[in-house]
Amino acid sequence: MATNLMLAATEPADTYIRFRDVQKSYGAVSVLNGISLDVAKGEVLVLCGPSGCGKSTLLRCINGLEPISSGTISVGEHRVDGASQDTLQKIRLSTGFVFQNFNLFPHMTALENITIAPRKILGLPQREAAAEGMKLLEQVGMAEKANVYPFQLSGGQRQRVAIARALAMKPSLMLFDEPTSALDPEMREEVLQVIRQVHHEHNMTMIVVTHEIGFAKSVASRAMLLDAGRIVEEASARVFFEHPVEERTRRFLRAISNDL
């Protein structure tokens, strides 16, 4: 508690996520090597980096899906490292997570996927939850698929439902882990459009792991390159994508634009 107060006194008031010298290893394999990072409220941070560099791990440390080995992470007024199950649950309630492989619940319809958490966690009555769920499905353009099971949906449709599912808990932070990289190219834009819209309508704090440069430039306030668990370069989105300082960043950006 005392440390929290001290941090609060020395840091800008609108910092929402704070990493301090975060290390994370799986056994002998070190995945995050001293990450320090601040994300302000309302900011959109784009996270890039080669496969295996630790992007997913970084996101998963924010909502406590992975415990860290040393350092500190705080989200809002909560400390994530060493948090009790109760605190972790509070952090997760205000943090939406969108996965690369959607991870919809296959035994529930699109609408049920969206209403289950508000009903069972927040205690929202069935009718209210369904009404709000339908509104969200409309927002992501999936209203006519409300009663369809995930196996009957395309990848892009699944991801849009997954985004609606996260939004149903009215989070103040959204974490997107390569939301379009499991999708066929023609389905990517429909998902990116939904993310842009979420950004504009809710002015929500977001961290997006993506290699979609066009999208990143249009929504990100800041961008960052992660390599081997270290932050290589961190800059405003414009500087990062147009005039990167580090040779490593230039090489990376060249490589991903050649892929497209």
């Binding site: 919809l104 599912r165 996260a166 808990m169």
Partner: peptide
């Protein structure tokens, strides 16, 4: 993981 992330 998806369910835990929602707060379950």
């Amino acid at each position: 993981q998806a369910a835990q992330s929602l707060g379950f």
